[in-house]
Simulated assay, not measured.
Amino acid sequence: MEKFTYEDSFQFKDFIEENSQLFKDTLLKEAVNVRDKTDEILRVGNIDLITNAHTLVGYIIEERDKELQAFAEQEGIAWATYSMAISFKLEWIQAIRRTLWYFFNKYILLSKDKSFNFFELEKQINNRVDDFLNTFFISYTKYKDSLINAQREQVEKLSVPIIPINPFVCVLPLIGTIDAQRIDILEDKMLTEIGEKRIQTIFMDLSGVPNINSDEIFRLIQIIDSASLMGCNTVLIGLRKEFVRKVTERGIKLNESTKTLGTLQQALREYLIT
């Protein structure tokens, strides 16, 4: 390992920069699980851990708290965007903390400056490291949650696709399980689309729904009734025997204007082909 160099005119930050290679080696030695991931993190997220470590140390030493907070927020967003393991970040920051104190100890020994108030300095440095971590985690969590919510909204939109056939007729193919959450999405999207686009007929294709419980069937019929009140008729397509059996068992009555057909092709022929 290289030896420390020191000049009397140097301040602590200059001391770290003069011994930058030693700083890097010490930091990587401290970060046992991260040191083999630095290239991968750079490649995937364009995050240079060593450069960022020097930036962070500079903000801490120079007491640049606004820049420190902004940097922590920026880092939180970057790590959330690329789904980096947050455990690596925690280990890396703690390695920076230990390396920083190791260097400070060497700096004091070489400079022989006895004027430092160690306890006050310890409080300031550790508080700033902790502030960075707190801001980072808050930023990471908020941005990660926003990404998850955006993805969920996209999935929800795709789970209830309303496909226009012409300005007045649309197809609503439902595939997969229909649960309470999806029924809520269906109600909101279907009634909104009817109101905004003045849809007159919706072909609701249930041939791809393997199962639906009685409560959701009742909710579905209520949505169809609501659509009818808005001037839109619903044509139910591809009803499975399980659906029909539950409708019969519960004594659920379809709206008089609601028609049922076996296939989408039948619906298209009856309503669109003259």
Rank of each mutant, 00 (worst) to 15 (best):
N52A: 02
P161T: 03
V169A: 04
S111A: 05
V247E: 02
L27N: 07
L254W: 03
G58W: 01
D39Y: 02
A85H: 10
Q154K: 11
D113A: 04
F15E: 01
R97F: 00
L147I: 12
F116H: 14
P210R: 12
I148Y: 03
R198H: 10
P167K: 14
R198S: 11
N117Q: 13
N213M: 05
D113Y: 03
I50W: 07
I224L: 09
K253R: 13
C232K: 03
Y6E: 09
D113G: 02
Q154Y: 10
R250V: 13
Q222I: 06
K241C: 01
E18T: 09
L174E: 05
L272P: 08
M84R: 12
L27M: 11
I163F: 00
F88V: 01
G238A: 02
F23L: 10
V32M: 14
K157I: 08
K259E: 11
I148G: 01
K197S: 09
R269G: 03
A150W: 01
S115C: 00
K241R: 12
T5M: 12
I185R: 01
Q151Y: 06
D8G: 15
K106V: 00
N46A: 07
R43A: 10
D215W: 04
E7V: 02
L268C: 03
I175N: 00
L42T: 08
R250E: 10
D215I: 14
F4E: 04
D145H: 05
T55F: 12
S228W: 07
W79P: 01
N211E: 15
L28A: 07
D8A: 14
L109T: 02
L191S: 02
I41R: 08
Y271A: 06
K123Y: 14
D225S: 13
I163T: 03
L264P: 03
V209P: 03
Q124A: 13
I224N: 11
K106R: 11
H54Y: 15
K259V: 06
T5L: 13
I202D: 04
L110E: 06
